[in-house]
Design a protein around this nucleic acid. Structure first.
Lengths: 138, 138
DNA sequence: GTAACTGCAAAATATTTGCATCCTT
DNA sequence: AAGGATGCAAATATTTTGCAGTTAC
């Protein structure tokens, strides 16, 4: 796991600092979309709130994580898949938010269906969020 | 238009106050998803910031408007269609956010395709946001 | 008349910026 | 050594809450 953390950071041209390793570990351990405050409570004061904001921003810019839309207003993030880089994101999976346990998961095996847009509209990215009850809470 | 405003408010069991009429008018005039700050700049101090928050909350609870997902963190709202009520929301259209003009529109004629969820997952609502270039900006 | 709505003040939460210091490369 | 990362302070933005006064029904 530690080797994975290092190689992921290196792969995305990010310096190997303890803070980044710890934050990335959280993403790897919890396979759900997490927010700034999730991380803050996980590390429990080990790093400054501002540092976490900047860490997330760096990860975002380098294509290590992506934003997960949420209907509650909270900003959440999830690990990108291997195909993502600073240059281009390649996400085609649906996000599912459970109304019961409040967890947002990436449905990696459910692809976003293609849609036909009206004349003149050009798609760049798409985000699909489904709300409901997850398998654990059903 | 004024009659439409009144009947819409009545239909959703909302008292006819000037503030609500004005806010609802903004939604009717601008057929795009708007945020709290959009409204605030539109009314230009006529009502308190807090009142607008509470107005939006009331509209939301009574099924007059719905939240529109946004990738920038801003919370936006759009008018519900006729089928929505306090009890149930019935949205099946895709939202399109233009990266150029920053406007979010409801693509009323593009339905959200149905997807098959993994075993145990149950869908309640779905939100589909496509980012790209709109017809005006292409 | 009464419950709901509004404005003002203030608190709580979320996010960003500047700067000095420290650490990775 | 140099540029990037961090911590602290503080500014800004966003949203919520309490309370007193006002208004719609």
């Amino acid at each position: 796991m530690d080797g994975q953390v290092k190689s992921l950071l290196k792969k995305h041209s990010l310096r190997l600092t303890q803070g980044r390793k710890d934050v990335l570990s959280i993403f790897l351990h919890r396979n759900i979309a997490i927010s700034h405050s999730d991380i803050e409570s996980d590390i429990d004061g080990k790093y400054d709130r501002v540092t976490i904001y900047r860490t997330l921003k760096s990860f975002l810019e380098k294509g290590l994580i992506h934003k997960v839309l949420d209907d509650s207003g909270a900003t959440r993030y999830a690990l990108c898949n291997d195909n993502c880089s600073e240059a281009e994101h390649q996400h085609n999976h649906i996000h599912f938010k459970c109304q019961s346990c409040d967890e947002t998961t990436c449905l990696d095996h459910v692809n976003i269906p293609s849609v036909t847009l009206p004349d003149g509209f050009q798609m760049a990215e798409s985000n699909f969020l489904i709300t409901g009850t997850c398998a654990k809470c059903a």
